[in-house]
Design a binder for these strands. Structure first.
Lengths: 199, 199
DNA sequence: TTGACAGGTGACCGGTTGGTCACTATAATA
DNA sequence: TATTATAGTGACCAACCGGTCACCTGTCAA
């Protein structure tokens, strides 16, 4: 089934808002991207702000399903090497997928201009990712892969530097290869340091 | 000596641009904040963009002197407790000083719209802070306070989570007390983990 | 005294932007 | 077949914004 115009508007609005900001985007450009006239947009949304709100609705729904339930947790790694591989896989996706990149840009650039974005930014950059790894680390401790420790603190210490490098990749997309290497080195070092049996 | 109008314009421009973004700010509001008419601004700067560029010039000069020379390095902590205290002092300032907060907001919200901001953002959030602690950690290893290790990797692992909490404080300034506690806990844990003599 | 100049004012201009409206085409339905 | 709802068009409008211009005022040097 083809995507509805209503959805396509949000797809293009994400691109536009992420690259120029909400205030820096205008409905004429948005309509042109869709091959529509500006007034056609008003058949689907009442205003520019309504498009913005619908886009945030969609993003909130996405985060609710991604971070909300335990179902979307990745399988617990059964070794330190598996943890590094999982991390590299997740990060590789996150710095390559266009939609994810645009979403991150939107969260960063609009976080101080809109309260819903503010909340989503904290969820995405802090609680969400760290929350997932809190679960994984707790499991890995139970299974004797990681030395017993505070899983939440460990997850925070693990994900925050990786997130910083993801942001660097958003700023300088040409350095992706180098950044992936740094993430791999950081993850490997971290895993070695907190492995159940040292060495 | 009183501040020149030219400087006061940049002061207010920082506030305006940081809170509404460059495109979301207009010269009428800026003039009103200064108690001037809009046309008076043109006696000091040729255009809105010229104000923006002058503001970036000033920011670049600030970062050059802060991160550029070894003179501005804090004194090397002579114990793990001193490291924690230094960290809390620096962070306490950075999340409280209005100008620093505004600068950070500007860097975050405009990093994808302007190449100079992009470069400054990487310098501020990644290389700069980590660079300072790379020096400190190297010194502390030489003096036997910290276990010998890769100082750059260690500095990155230390500063990135703190920076993430600083960003959280920018988004949710009401949580400053809680955030300072988290930073203290993280710093203390990190120091204990990398101290020369364990325990 | 005069003239140049720096700093400031308000009116005005053209381009852009969000939003409206009358109108059209098409497809489903009574 | 007549009707109605949906989706789309282009012209238009008012508000806003960056920028210009003629003009004013105080200071200070020639």
């Amino acid at each position: 089934m083809d995507k509805s115009t209503k959805d396509r508007i949000l797809d293009e609005a994400l691109i536009l808002f992420a690259e120029n900001g909400y205030r820096g985007s205008n409905l004429r450009d948005l309509a042109a991207r869709l091959g529509l006239s500006k007034s056609a947009l008003y058949k689907h949304y009442d205003s520019k702000e309504a498009i913005w709100n619908a886009l945030l609705d969609r993003m909130e729904a996405y985060y609710a399903q991604r971070f909300g339930s335990a179902e979307h947790l990745p399988e617990t790694p059964d070794s330190c090497e598996a943890l590094v591989q999982l991390t590299l896989g997740m990060t590789g996706f996150t710095i390559s997928d266009p939609q994810v990149i645009l979403t991150r840009k939107l969260l960063l650039t609009e976080q101080f201009h809109d309260d819903r974005v503010r909340a989503l930014a904290t969820k995405h950059f802090l609680e969400g990712t760290a929350g997932i790894f809190t679960h994984l680390f707790a499991d890995m401790m139970d299974r004797g892969v990681l030395r017993r420790d505070d899983p939440a603190m460990l997850a925070f210490a693990y994900t925050a530097p990786i997130t910083a490098l993801v942001h660097l990749s958003d700023r300088e997309p040409d350095r992706k290869a180098e950044i992936m290497e740094r993430i791999g080195a950081f993850a490997a070092r971290f895993a070695a340091e907190h492995a159940a049996q040292k060495g």
